[in-house]
């Protein structure tokens, strides 16, 4: 039906559409290139205080103090962990190294969290 009514004007529209779609697609790819590295975000009292590209991370330890506690966060190339915390349960420390987008180490009593995110992650979030 549509094929039988295909005219010169339609071809022009199709070509313009295809060109613009390709351009838009390329723009999207360029915008996202290089943005896919895993990034560690340190959240203290609900605010992101540090954002570190894990691929470029140097081995170092940083100490973060919230209103309710203190956490030492250890960075290494490609991974991060909460190395020490003054909370009673130590759940955050026992979480260990995290490296992939979607992972997190959270100190609920101390209100400090380290989350790993990445723009080109396969998933937007983890349910569970």
């Amino acid at each position: 039906m549509i094929l039988t009514r295909f005219k010169k004007g339609d071809l022009f529209v199709a070509v313009v559409t295809a060109t613009l779609l390709l351009a838009a697609g390329a723009a999207a790819l360029i915008a996202r290139a290089g943005a896919g590295d895993p990034v560690a975000i340190v959240i203290v009292d609900g605010a992101a205080v540090d954002i570190i590209n894990l691929r470029d991370a140097r081995a170092e330890e940083r100490v973060y103090a919230s209103a309710l506690g203190t956490c030492a966060v250890a960075f290494e190339p490609g991974r991060v962990r909460i190395a020490a915390a003054d909370c009673p349960d130590q759940v955050c420390v026992h979480t260990g190294w995290i490296s992939r987008p979607g992972q997190s180490a959270v100190c609920v009593p101390g209100r400090v969290a380290v989350v790993v995110r990445g723009d080109r992650a396969e998933v937007d979030a983890i349910v569970g």
């Binding site: 313009v16 351009a23 838009a24 999207a28 360029i30 992101a48």
Partner: peptide
Amino acid sequence: VAGTAALAAVLALFMGCAPKPVSRAGF
């Protein structure tokens, strides 16, 4: 043509230059 261009512009907006998302975390 105008319709197609508008459509492509909307697509480009959403695919390439979408407004920066805003995030917040809390406990």
